[in-house]
């Protein structure tokens, strides 16, 4: 069980030190950019599938603390999950911020954002990156775009601005 102080630390840490935030130009990645037109949140998510698993998940963009920390936590959580597991995690996160029952422990650090359920105007901030990842995973799975060899993952990764 986490305390609210720990949750704060987790959120601020991901906000200030975003994980996996270098985008790549590797064509094996499926890239989805989503914006929240009302507030200007703008997140790009890249996913790479390999053998039915999310081999890599990257994210970059600009937005509020909820949007950016959420994207960062997600990028860590989805890595190495099967397509089914990843989609289940996306659904679970969405349920959590909508205030619906779900298995919070599954979400690991991302459960720090459970309080978004009390902030209906901010739900879209929290789910933006997850929505992009979901779309990317489904798209990659449908197109059968898969990374050849897991060892080549870092190829073509560029420093973001």
């Amino acid at each position: 069980m986490y305390s609210s102080d720990l949750y704060r630390q987790i959120i601020m840490d991901h906000y200030q030190n975003p994980r996996n935030h270098h985008l790549t130009e590797n064509p094996d990645y499926c890239t989805v950019r989503l914006k929240n037109p009302s507030c200007g949140d703008d997140i790009t998510v890249q996913v790479c599938l390999c053998g039915g698993r999310v081999a890599d998940c990257r994210q970059n963009g600009s937005g509020c603390s909820i949007c950016c920390s959420s994207a960062s936590m997600m990028s860590e959580l989805l890595r190495e999950k099967s397509v089914e597991e990843a989609l289940e995690l996306v659904a679970c996160f969405r349920q959590m911020v909508m205030g619906e029952p779900c298995d919070l422990d599954m979400l690991e650090e991302a459960q720090s954002l459970a309080g978004v359920a009390n902030l209906p105007p901010r739900v879209n901030c929290a789910t933006l990156a997850w929505q992009a990842a979901e779309r990317g995973i489904l798209q990659a799975a449908a197109e059968g775009v898969e990374q050849g060899a897991p060892g080549e993952l870092a190829d073509g990764i560029e420093e973001a601005r």
């Binding site: 507030c39 200007g40 949140d41 509020c64 603390s65 949007c67 902030l119 105007p121 901010r122």
Partner: peptide, 11 residues
């Protein structure tokens, strides 16, 4: 502070 973060404080 991102304006959207601040807006929740005002709300």
């Amino acid at each position: 502070v991102h304006p959207h973060d601040a807006s929740s404080v005002y709300d």
